[in-house]
Nucleic acid binder design. Sequence first.
DNA 1: CTAGCGATGTTGCTGCCATCAACTTATGTA
DNA 2: TACATAAGTTGATGGCAGCAACATCGCTAG
Lengths: 220, 220
Amino acid sequence: MAGHVAVVNMPVVSPSAKRYHHGNLRAALIDAGVERAREGGPEAVVLREVSRLAGVSHNAAYRHFADRDALLQAVCDRCMSELARLMEAGIAEVDPDERSVQAARLRLRATGMAYVEFALSEPGWFRTAFAVPPGLGYLDGEEGVGAGGHGPLELLGEQLDGLLDAAALPAERRAGAELAAWSAVHGFAMLVLEGPLRSLPDEERDAALTRLLDTVERGL
Amino acid sequence: MAGHVAVVNMPVVSPSAKRYHHGNLRAALIDAGVERAREGGPEAVVLREVSRLAGVSHNAAYRHFADRDALLQAVCDRCMSELARLMEAGIAEVDPDERSVQAARLRLRATGMAYVEFALSEPGWFRTAFAVPPGLGYLDGEEGVGAGGHGPLELLGEQLDGLLDAAALPAERRAGAELAAWSAVHGFAMLVLEGPLRSLPDEERDAALTRLLDTVERGL
DNA sequence: CTAGCGATGTTGCTGCCATCAACTTATGTA
DNA sequence: TACATAAGTTGATGGCAGCAACATCGCTAG
């Protein structure tokens, strides 16, 4: 996503040529929104500023998005996808063919670590990913998915299934396990990022994360 | 806090008499801010609107607060205090003299339940409590405390100490237990309130909360 | 080949907000 | 009792979201 440039549906003309019709404005606006969100989070996704970045006048955006929230929604999706990709990458670091309890546990742990690492390394994107405008329900389907076509929740579920298969998770506890694990890492990220623990020293923060993941592993 | 009316430092004159000097504007502004936050969360704490509610012109607020963020900060504190009070109330429902493992566990559970109940019953206040403006670190000291003078983090810590005393928590796991437990309930509240799980049916939500608290209890 | 229509951008409003500066009124104190 | 100062007010500026009316372009039917 970093340095992302829309490649699909590129304008037929040279991008430098200043034309009345942009040719690919919708994608350009989302790109610009993602860029701003990276620095300043969801509140930095400002229609006028984003339009300026896209080299177009304010109001042009209204041809492609009903209002600011619609643009923000699209930007949120992209941020969520980025999170999914990072989680996929973390999971993939454990040999996919390995079926041991150990491997299943490592994968779950990697999932949680990737989640928090994303929050800490890209706070703007992380906050944006969860800043879906009120009223709009998360569709949980096609949007916000990683390269494998699965969203964060599905990725987490797959790791829990892996734990189940490896007999490291009692079957009667499988239900609802997603939400328990997810809540833990999400809350940690929020508290540390913009909550009361925002000024916790890095060292203590990392120790607390390890402690947290241990707790989840024991408790699930 | 509901229907809260500032009693300390009330103006010496009848409140209905329209005077040039309000007499107690600072408190009135905070009250109005809390009222708006209840409905619309932190973004509803708007200087002009709050001033209107206090029956004073915009800009009057600048005699009492450096800027909007300073007012918001004060409102956040009040919301956090309200959370602390609800947690205290939940904890107090278990006989304070009872020292059993059972009682200690119930108290921890009540703490978490109160936390989530506050988030669900007063979403505006909950979101505001954690919306301390960036740059301002949480002081974690005098602010945001309940009737007993303790903040949410301290209240949680006390319950964990209780678990320790009752030998329901190994001493080597006491460190960092606050953050683990807190993260879980906080993440749950966020995900359910404004996150991807915002449209989860009440029934499933309650079941998930039970499952979550079980997990924490086992894992700590 | 070309007229014109619809899609895409632009200019110029309105109304809301935060904040600054300059002015006014009340209060308490010397 | 005068006046310094705290507390409120009026009236700017500049930014943002969104509406309306106008301008330009590109494609397609005839």
